[in-house]
Design a protein around this nucleic acid. Structure first.
Lengths: 208, 208
DNA sequence: ATTGATACCCACCGTCCGTTTGGTAGATAA
DNA sequence: TTATCTACCAAACGGACGGTGGGTATCAAT
């Protein structure tokens, strides 16, 4: 009955729960970004953390748990930024401009988690997707709202369908995650500038 | 030595090479669309075709072969359409408009293969990606080219960087694959209309 | 000094994966 | 009639997968 521990592996550095948990999320997000959710194994995640894959189940109940939390936090973080940007003073056109600039900055600051969010949302069961997206506010509605207001007050042209236009604008901004590089800081202003110049003059009611 | 065929399974309907091969590509494309490349098994592909998964190796050398052909043909088909659209007569602005309309139509007609192309390109080794994208012409360059010409002739505003603007325009158009539904035919015109209205008036030199 | 919770190890499970191999019925051609 | 080709079957391969469960070293609190 002698217990033979067979310690040929150095034990992992023991860490408090919160710290290790956020490490798991960070590492998983990076791997999901590089290889996709299905292409990433728990083995790989564990290896990068220096622990055994079985130890992950001290923190999770299934692989899907990790994806859910990653996507949920990415969505929450982005939506928070956008919400505060939508509250600047001025015309609806001013607010739209602020939202565009804020969203690009938000994506640039979180290219990886944004990409994972946009690419891997479909890997979750519908029920979990609804839980993430089903809050009181959401991206498309916010854009649709500000477009409607701008049309009423006359700063935004009225020959466009607000809902479709919101989809187009949001999609355009989101597509930047494919090529936006946050390390190139000077570039960010330029990108924001181009987007506002193109979209604002494309959406404003007159030649401004 | 008696050969016991053990025919408890109905044999698959035997089909000529070309026909079966295009069936494989069609089925694989649909499955890659629904579950991603990594999430799709050869077993599933075979099941939909009514053959054994081992039989697939009469047509391929590896699973990756299927993805390569699917992506390559999707890319070729789209580029062909765009190329012919870029040759309409008129100003560069007219050509840009034609390219926008053509590309949206091209995506709408091939939502599935377009989505697979944009989502699963990264699942291929870099070498294979280069082989697909490395032709004489490519999407971003075509847009950059027409933008430059429009700036020279004065129909397109000159305070924009052609390369960055091309990236933005192309990304905007490509993002439609996430929500464009080809079955709704009346919708297509509306989408094309919105895109041209927004982008053209955002890019043109004057208030047109 | 003892205890109880915490953070992790490690061997193992059943399943599914892409891939390989040997074989064969049916059409074609000589 | 015989030989060859074509399109597929059937079974097995090793390995990787997500997941389980008993065990244990380390820690803070007593």
């Amino acid at each position: 009955m002698s217990t033979i521990p067979n310690r040929n592996q150095p034990a992992a550095t023991r860490k408090p729960r919160e710290e290790r948990w956020s490490e798991i999320l960070t590492v998983a997000t990076e791997l999901f970004y590089q290889k996709g959710y299905e292409g990433t194994s728990l083995q790989e995640i564990a290896e990068r953390l220096g622990i055994m894959k079985g130890s992950l189940y001290y923190y999770i109940r299934s692989k899907e748990d990790i994806l859910f939390v990653v996507l949920n936090e990415a969505h929450k973080a982005g939506l928070e930024r956008m919400t505060s940007a939508a509250q600047v003073e001025g015309t609806a056109l001013d607010r739209l401009r602020a939202m565009i600039i804020a969203h690009i900055r938000s994506i640039a600051d979180n290219v990886i988690s944004t990409a994972v969010f946009l690419n891997e949302m479909k890997s979750l069961p519908q029920e979990s997707q609804d839980k993430i997206l089903g809050g009181a506010v959401n991206y498309p509605k916010m854009f649709e709202q500000v477009l409607r207001e701008g049309m009423e007050e006359g700063t935004i042209r009225q020959d466009l369908d607000p809902k479709l236009t919101a989809t187009i604008v949001l999609g355009s901004l989101n597509s930047t995650h494919r090529w936006l590089h946050p390390e190139r800081h000077g570039n960010l202003r330029k990108v924001q500038d181009h987007f506002t110049r193109i979209l604002i003059s494309g959406l404003a009611s007159d030649g401004n």
